[in-house]
């Protein structure tokens, strides 16, 4: 009798112990999901409206990759890095097969009228198609280089056409625009960057890195 008396008592005690401990723990453990949730909310809210595409380009802040490619208008002439302009310019990768390039083309014509120096890279295109494309829509490029194999584009870290690179007077790539160039991104990021580069080029020194970082980001 005395044995059975003792055992339930002890059990009762243990249950009680466990309950008090659980109560305290519960308070803390209830907070954990709440804190995690709040953290997540803040994180997600901060990202709202920001671009979601990851652009990982290694060509930036590096010289234009070495190339040896024929001129589109006269494929017997081989162009190299030395033939690139020694003033800041835009390097536009295009193809007659690329729908966005066709949309972008009139704006490139307008940029040429505004006195922007454009160099075209004709990317994996049939030469006949490419030339008739330029005849039809006009040729905004001071020269077009033929990249039939797409190797040069690969060296540039191209993801598709059209893409545009801003190159400074020293042949260093300063900005990479994926997709079309239009009035909006011209005003927003291309023109400011180009102005800084032009300014530096006029003074005959390399552009100030902090200024470039500010304007060409």
């Amino acid at each position: 009798m005395s044995q059975s008396d003792k055992t339930p008592n002890k059990q009762q005690d243990n249950v009680q112990h466990r309950k008090t401990m659980n109560k305290k723990q519960l308070k803390v453990w209830f907070l954990v999901p709440l804190i995690v949730f709040l953290g997540l909310m803040v994180m997600l809210y901060m990202r709202l409206g920001k671009p979601t595409d990851i652009v990982a380009n290694m060509a930036l802040e590096r010289p234009v990759p070495a190339f040896e490619l024929p001129l589109l208008s006269d494929t017997s002439r081989i162009m190299t890095n030395d033939n690139l302009p020694d003033k800041p310019f835009l390097m536009n990768i295009w193809g007659s097969w690329c729908p966005t390039c066709i949309i972008e083309h009139p704006f490139l014509m307008e940029l040429e009228e505004r006195g922007v120096n454009l160099v075209g890279i004709n990317y994996k295109d049939d030469i006949g198609d490419a030339l008739s494309y330029l005849n039809r829509g006009g040729d905004p490029f001071s020269m077009s280089i033929q990249d039939l194999s797409g190797q040069f584009a690969l060296d540039l870290g191209l993801t598709g056409a059209p893409e545009t690179f801003i190159v400074d007077g020293d042949g260093i790539i300063r900005q990479h625009i994926i997709g079309e160039v239009n009035e909006a991104n011209w005003q927003e990021r291309i023109m400011p960057c180009l102005m800084v580069l032009n300014e530096a080029n006029k003074n005959g020194n390399s552009p100030d890195p902090s200024q470039v970082g500010e304007a060409c980001k």
Binding site: I54, A56, N57, M58, L156, G157
Partner: peptide
């Protein structure tokens, strides 16, 4: 590949 497209590749 990494030289051209970074760790993203």
């Amino acid at each position: 590949m990494q030289e051209r497209y970074g760790d993203f590749i």
